[in-house]
Design a protein around this nucleic acid. Structure first.
Lengths: 354, 354
DNA sequence: TAGCCTACTGCAAACCTTTTCCAACCACGG
DNA sequence: CCGTGGTTGGAAAAGGTTTGCAGTAGGCTA
């Protein structure tokens, strides 16, 4: 119903000519015919069948984005950036929340491959899992064979991100800032160890500690899931492991929110007794109480830039690795260590009668 | 490269047979041939071309979701629900952020139509704009003609949502609760008037007021964009319009966040001087200070349910309108009116010497 | 005026699956 | 031995678009 041959017939030309007008081909078509075809298309409310076109070009005007959870503001910001850029080029964006489950991620990539998506962008970090990585790699190379672009926005088994931020350096800055405030006993809430990005941020923590001449104490490093529940849980474990802690750096804003929540429940005041930092600067990080010190990541730019790289690859040009600037933003959840307050809360008698 | 005929050749059968095995057809195929085909497909790492299949069925295994902004937690929750349900059925989800710009929404729907998407779900409210509505309607009927399902999760030009919540009743509950606390001068921050859902919620406000015997005062109703900036701005306008206000109901959580922010800047304490309510219960509504009273919407269920309806339509069954339960959740941003505190702040002398 | 070039247009094949016939085959009962 | 019916597999068409190749006409040059 309503194909290009109908348009051609109405315009009194061959389907070939109609196609050349409607698909923006560079093939010469006289102005007169062109107008007739356009009028016919308009009249018939014709919209070309992207499936047929894609079948022929062996590539659909679709870009797939693999995220961990679209509900996580970190990812929705990135997706939005991709969307904005993609819409301008007439691409549609498919989002797929893997929940960090390898099988689910593979299933999505396979679906995307079947659909002959023009590009697939991995917004989230790669997952360390051998069998799975191999299966995904197979799909990816198959996709590249038909001309698709593959872009990583985070480190993965394939190596560092094609466009991303320097997670190691950024986390080092955070911890360095904490050390500069006078903190020595700095706890760290890391992400799952099977997430490449978590490893990077953890490395930043270790580096900064070494650089500041602070010995890394194993019990000060705990790992948790990249969400609020993980953070809340980790805060408790950390406090139990070392009550003399004066700061907690989190690998993630969501974790930091969880830490803040749990600390409030526990009656530990931030930043007086404990400084807390996050990472990512998701919208909402500035609305916590106290507002969260974190590192701002240009998430939307990351998405935009990622799609641009994909386009570049599709155009046959060689992409170049790109690092986006991050920025340390110190808000109210960090301060100099003031352990007195903490001690006061714990043993008031000592202070009242010195 | 690597089509079903290669698989057929390797298995020593015709493409027809291979197709019958691989596409789960009901046509009988002996177990022996079946196994041979499956082995061949595995061997060749064959993934069927969804474009070719879609071209034939004139429908791609894709569902498009039109949202206003994927970055808004309201929408990302819905999308997640749709995704979860869609993945189980082998559908891919395309998200499109229209930013409430009619032209952009139309462009997305057109793209979806070209792609022969099996379904399109409108997560956000319809936009009141005649020319635009007509153009979108044309696309939609064209889609329905080729068998696509169209589902609205919010009121639109086509009428009430196919699956949604009762916005009128829910907002009425909020305002009724405020009235029950003793509030009489209740300001209302509405959404843009060209958004169908905003009209519904506003109606709820008016209804509750009438029901409580409170006369509706025009200057107590202001309209603003459905985001934080809108809320912040509206708070100020409302306060200027009537300093004796004791409560502000917002059409939206995001607006309420903006109101809370601005009120804090202005030094107005919530809920002592002013009660504030939101609507939607986005994640984060419980983390504000004070935590936000609002109405909880089962967003993820809404998405899930929406996709189910779409599937039902695709299966040829008649969908039935479905209302999901909402729930009023009173947190700390609401209390009885305690105007004394407010007056004290403004005119201390009067109180000190009565 | 012949010949060539340019600008334009049309034909038909190709992209990859699915699906409708049809044919072949088997076993079985009459 | 033949007809019947069920099972299995193949040939071919269809779905909508793009594109290489070929063809036409008109204009320009020599």
């Amino acid at each position: 119903m309503g194909s290009i041959v109908d348009v051609a017939r109405l315009a009194g030309v061959s389907p070939a000519t109609a196609s050349r007008v409607l698909s923006g081909s560079s093939h010469a078509v006289s102005q007169a015919t062109r107008s007739r075809v356009e009028a016919a298309a308009e009249e018939l409310d014709f919209v070309p069948n992207a499936l047929a076109r894609g079948l022929l070009k062996s590539r659909a005007p679709i870009v797939g984005v693999i995220v961990h959870d679209i509900t996580d503001p970190y990812f929705s910001e990135i997706v939005r950036g991709i969307e904005d850029q993609a819409e301008a080029s007439g691409y549609l964006v498919i989002t797929s929340s893997s929940d960090r489950i390898p099988a689910r991620e593979e299933s999505y990539v396979r679906l995307l491959r079947g659909m002959r998506a023009a590009a697939v962008l991995f917004a989230g970090s790669g997952i360390r899992d051998e069998a799975f990585e191999e299966r995904v790699a197979r799909h990816l190379t198959a996709m590249e064979r038909y001309g698709a672009a593959v872009v990583h926005l985070s480190p993965s088994a394939r190596g560092p991100a094609l466009v991303g931020v320097d997670n190691v350096a950024a986390m080092a800055e955070v911890v360095r800032a904490l050390a500069a405030l006078g903190h020595r006993r700095i706890g760290y809430v890391g992400g799952p160890e099977w997430l490449y990005v978590a490893a990077d941020r953890e490395r930043g923590y270790r580096n900064a500690l070494a650089e500041a001449g602070i010995e890394m104490e194993p019990q000060l490093l705990v790992r948790a899931s990249f969400d609020q529940a993980g953070g809340a849980d980790a805060a408790e474990r950390l406090l139990r492991a070392d009550p003399r802690l004066t700061a907690i750096a989190c690998a993630n804003d969501l974790q930091a929110l969880g830490v803040l929540d749990r600390l409030a429940q526990l009656g530990v005041s931030v930043p007086d007794e404990l400084s807390v930092t996050g990472f990512d600067d998701i919208p909402g990080a500035s609305r916590t109480t106290p507002s969260l010190s974190t590192v701002h990541l240009p998430l939307r730019d990351l998405g935009r830039s990622g799609f641009q790289q994909a386009e570049k690859i599709l155009a046959g040009r060689r992409p170049h690795r790109r690092l986006l600037a991050h920025e340390l933003v110190l808000r109210r959840s960090t301060s100099k260590p003031r352990r007195a307050a903490r001690v006061a809360a714990e043993m008031p008698t000592e202070l009242v009668a010195p």
